[in-house]
């Protein structure tokens, strides 16, 4: 089990899913801190605001696809322009209930996305992913 030192950022417009996923993460003890953003825009703002205070930045991001205004892919278009120092230290996975093949292909093709996790979030799937990337995550 990874040490719980990292920060995870959840980006999802759905309150219930945010509640469920943060509870799953809390119960599994994967991260020390959970940051919650209810839109892609809020997520971008959070990161932008804290670029100079790396201790507040997330080590891992779980991003929903289907969101109003800025969807997951639009978020990624802005996200990829963040400085490398940040991007190299933060891993991002998509967490979505989508079954749309186009969405899935698009997610897999994006070099910034380490995996497309399907909702509901299962602790062991997340753990496996975190183990695989634990060195990269520095946690």
């Amino acid at each position: 089990m990874p040490n719980k030192t990292g920060k995870v950022l959840l980006i999802d417009d759905n309150d219930i899913d945010l509640k469920i996923n943060s509870k799953v993460i809390k119960l599994s003890n994967f991260f020390e801190e959970i940051i919650i953003c209810q839109s892609g825009k809020e997520g971008i703002e959070y990161i932008t605001k804290n670029l100079d205070t790396p201790e507040l930045l997330p080590d891992f991001i779980l991003l929903d696809i289907q969101m109003p205004e800025m969807d997951g892919f639009e978020f990624l278009e802005i996200y990829k322009n963040f400085p490398r120092t940040f991007l190299d230290n933060c891993k991002l996975a998509i967490l979505s209930s989508t079954l749309d093949f186009g969405d899935i292909k698009k997610a897999e093709a994006n070099p910034l996305v380490i995996k497309l996790l399907k909702k509901p979030l299962y602790p062991n799937e997340l753990q496996e992913l975190l183990n695989k990337h634990s060195t990269l995550l520095g946690i």
Binding site: I20, K119, P120
Partner: peptide, 25 residues
């Protein structure tokens, strides 16, 4: 069809997520 795969399924997946939490707790 696209909206079925999103809108109709998303709340159902939330329900399954809640059931998983119930198990975990």
């Amino acid at each position: 069809i696209y909206s079925i795969s999103h809108e109709l399924r998303a709340p159902l997946v939330s329900v399954i997520g809640i059931i998983n939490l119930v198990k975990m707790e």
